[in-house]
Design a protein around this nucleic acid. Structure first.
Lengths: 202, 202
DNA sequence: GTCTATACAGTGATAGAC
DNA sequence: GTCTATCACTGTATAGAC
């Protein structure tokens, strides 16, 4: 639990950025919280923008580990039912977002999306494109395995994943205000049930 | 086309906020662009926060006009097919977002969602809740009219609308970078087709 | 790797003349 | 309703001692 000064700066900045936005937080405020002088910060980060870039890159690295590698897919898909697979994916992502630092990174990503090109890249490439491409492969394989009905795999990927993104947006806002999230969570369960029913061969 | 000073301040602030975020824009920058002195701005808005509140309230009012009043629903639903109804709604919203000021307000909303309680309220209440409640009533009526298959209307509302929100997020980012949006647009068309196929009585 | 000291332009906002 | 003048403070960043 012993943090280096650089780590302290990183997590303090993450916390403040996620509440007030990048431009709403000053170097003075970060260093005051960390307990060092402004000038000391520049021994660890060359400027304020580099702290933000470091946060976004960190999120990117973390997120890339949530999807199982394509090589393992065949094995996973053969040894589990579609329901098990989708629910495991759901649990997996839920675990990912249960880390409060990930939630903070998500908020920073949302707030910086029109100010920072890297934020847009992470949203478009990592969140949207990579996830959809992965699911497209999954559904194609499930069709080949005759585990689900024949359907355009990309359409299935979008119909499955896009509601999840919106539900996550709603969830994050509710959580931020400390409001009840049980309805959104049951909507997500409901969505998965609905989708399973839809693709199941009868 | 003759704008009052207050309007000039409003639209200049909207433009700048939508690019740099609220905290990234100074009163000086706004007034320089408008062509007045800083002190003159305070004759029209009591402070910087009031300009933001005015922008969010404006969006709220505009958006509330996009959904037809419930009293007219019976007439509309009886005199059109489900396909016509959904596609008209789509066109309607597309027109709404073709106004560049609305796009800017949307961006401000996204960026301010964790800094400004009013932004969260607009997203949760106006965008999510009101839209879903409206669609829930629509689908219930369509079921009663035997125009679509029997299904939980709230689930249908969510399955229809939530992908639209995500597609809109993606669309807005692509537009901001001046990138090609034709794929996202065809995904939206595809989603509507998919959903229509799903609820149609065969 | 931390500190003190310093630079200096930019911040939101107000008082009061015209 | 606009201006000039001014306020006290905050912004990022650097130089150089320890």
């Amino acid at each position: 639990m012993t943090q280096t000064t650089k780590e302290k700066i990183f997590f303090t900045a993450l916390d403040l950025f996620s509440k007030k936005g990048f431009s709403g937080v000053s170097i003075r405020e970060i260093t005051r919280e960390v307990g060092i002088k402004e000038s000391s910060l520049y021994n660890h980060f060359s400027n304020k923008d580099e702290i933000l870039a470091s946060i976004l890159t960190h999120f990117r690295g973390d997120f890339s580990k949530t999807l199982p590698p394509i090589e393992m897919l065949d094995h996973i898909l053969q040894s589990s039912t579609v329901e098990q697979f989708l629910k495991a994916g759901h649990r997996n992502f839920k675990n990912f977002m249960e880390d409060e630092n990930r939630v903070k990174m998500w908020r920073v990503l949302q707030m910086e999306q029109f100010r920072t090109p890297l934020a847009r890249e992470v949203i478009l490439e990592d969140l949207f494109k990579t996830t959809i491409r992965f699911l497209e492969i999954v559904f194609q394989k499930l069709i080949d395995l005759k585990k689900i009905r024949e359907y355009d795999p990309k359409t299935l990927a979008i119909e499955y994943q896009y509601p999840v993104f919106s539900l996550l947006t709603e969830y994050t806002i509710l959580k931020f205000d400390g409001k009840d999230t049980s309805e959104v969570e049951s909507r997500l369960d409901n969505h998965i049930e609905f989708f399973l029913e839809l693709i199941t061969i009868k």
